[in-house]
Write a protein that binds this DNA or RNA. Structure first.
Length: 421
RNA sequence: GUGGAAUUAGCUCAGUUGGUUAGAGCGCCAGUUUGUGGCAUUGGAGGUCGUGGGUUCGAUUCCCAUAUUCCACCCCA
């Protein structure tokens, strides 16, 4: 093979693309039911947008970005996530002058330089949304309700919702110190990574998978106990709202997100099937991000869902959104004259919305029928001298094998015959 | 960035203890049937045995490097 797609990228081919289209159509529909409109933003931004937006200390910015200088010497980065770009657009386009809340959804490809595994690629796709201007927990709950409706419509079960509150900058500062005080005596027992985390972001130690670290972290103080009154009230409000809407969740005190911009509410949907890449969807509140990117004080909340992971989960749970095959016909032919007649009839039927295929590879009748059967076409007919002379043909139902005689010069009757079943 | 496994036809995989033209099933094309698919039967096309080096009279097979995929870390969607 001379050329291969770059590591971590994939070609998505039919019929799989039909499944993608169906998922995206459904996501657009459900988002629309909640008042969200689609936003499309550039594939690349100034590198600074992500350094500021996602956070300089995060793994994404430190080691996973596709960054390069363009010919004008500007530092450009392929988007590794959607939120920073949407917020940049929000600020640049002055969207805060529109009535709150401003609700935007997106379906975009993302780029991260990572080691590849199933459900984890260097170019991948996210379905996500952001809402700006609403501060209360009601909108957090509404977003979760939107996700629940989406999963229901897709037909997914067995995905768990975990929620937590990581407080605001004020309570986190107090908690940080408390955590450090707790871990300091154990510093020598922690793994190498955690000793680094101790300096950079001790919150992450809670997430560590190393058994020894987990044992130590078990007794660590919980962020819950350090939330200030406003943050605590907000989190209690969220739980109350979720209960009222009948949405099931689990409070996961150790749930921490890897992006710096989150405040207060964080949540994720986790699957049991998709290996270690079980997080299908993650999100939360980011009340300070708009300001951080030079905009006004506007609270915000959103999530992003991995489309590849969603589709993997759908496959694991054996659900499919493949659309039903609509009316379709194969018109075969013998001879040049009949070929022209077949293509002319086909064109006429297509203008009426029927899927039609004709012979384009010069096959014999048997080969033509074989193609019609394998291509999933519902009906077939073969045109030859007799059919042209009598203007009638045998219309064959490819499922039952039954045949009926139809007139070729009565377009209305032919259309009825093709669409009735 | 770290560690492990895999890579042979379009797909799923055999195989060669190093030796002439590398196999199967499925798929594709065609014949049996000068005009009707799925079954049967016969034939055909399709492979630089991931890539590049090395050892050897000779490498798809052994060695080294490298790429890709998968898995575990890490991290995230």
């Amino acid at each position: 093979m001379n050329y291969a797609a770059p590591k971590g990228t994939r070609d998505i081919l039919p019929p799989e693309t039909a499944e993608w289209q169906a998922v995206e159509r459904l996501f657009s529909e459900v988002a629309g039911l909640f008042g969200y409109g689609e936003i499309r933003i550039p594939t690349f931004e100034s590198t600074e947008v992500f350094q500021r937006g996602v956070g300089d200390a995060t793994d994404i910015v430190q080691k996973e970005m596709y960054t390069f200088d363009d010919k004008g010497g500007r530092s450009i980065t392929l988007r590794p996530e959607g939120t920073a770009g949407v917020v940049r657009s929000f600020v640049q386009r002055g969207m805060s002058s529109q009535p709150y809340p401003i609700k935007l959804y997106y379906m975009l490809n993302m780029f991260r330089y990572e080691n590849v595994q199933e459900g984890r690629y260097r170019e991948f796709h996210q379905l996500g949304l952001e809402s700006f201007g609403a501060e209360g927990p009601e909108i957090d709950a509404e977003i979760i309700a939107l996700l629940q409706l989406f999963f229901d419509r897709v037909g997914l079960k067995e995905t768990h919702l975990n929620i937590n509150s990581i407080g605001c900058a004020d309570c986190r500062a107090v908690y940080h110190e408390a955590l450090k005080d707790y871990f300091r005596p154990h510093l020598n027992e922690l793994c190498e990574d955690c000793r680094k985390r101790f300096e950079i972001n001790p919150l992450r130690i809670l997430d560590c998978k190393v058994e020894r670290c987990q044992t130590i972290a078990k007794e660590a103080p919980l962020l819950q106990d350090f939330l200030d009154d406003d943050c605590r009230t907000h989190f209690e409000g969220l739980k109350k709202e979720l209960d009222a809407l009948g949405l099931k969740y689990r409070v996961e005190p150790r749930l921490v997100r890897g992006l710096d911009y989150y405040t207060r509410t964080v949540f994720e949907y986790v699957s049991d099937h998709v290996g270690t890449q079980g997080t299908i969807c993650g999100g939360g509140r980011y009340d300070k991000l708009v300001e951080a990117l030079g905009g006004p004080k506007v609270p915000a909340c959103g999530f992003a869902m991995g489309e590849e992971r969603l589709l993997l989960e759908m496959a694991a749970q054996k659900v499919s959104l493949m659309p039903e095959q609509s009316a379709s016909l194969y018109i075969g032919s013998i001879g040049d004259e009949a070929g022209i007649a077949a293509r002319r009839l086909g064109f006429a039927l297509r203008t009426k919305g029927i899927r039609v295929e004709t012979e384009l590879c010069g096959r014999g009748v048997k080969g033509q029928m074989k193609y019609a059967g394998k291509s999933g076409l519902r009906y077939s007919m073969i045109l030859g001298d007799n059919e042209l002379a009598t203007q009638t043909a045998e219309l064959k139902d490819m499922n039952s094998g039954e045949k009926q005689t139809v007139r070729l010069d009565d377009a209305e009757a032919l259309y009825t015959a093709l669409t009735k079943g």
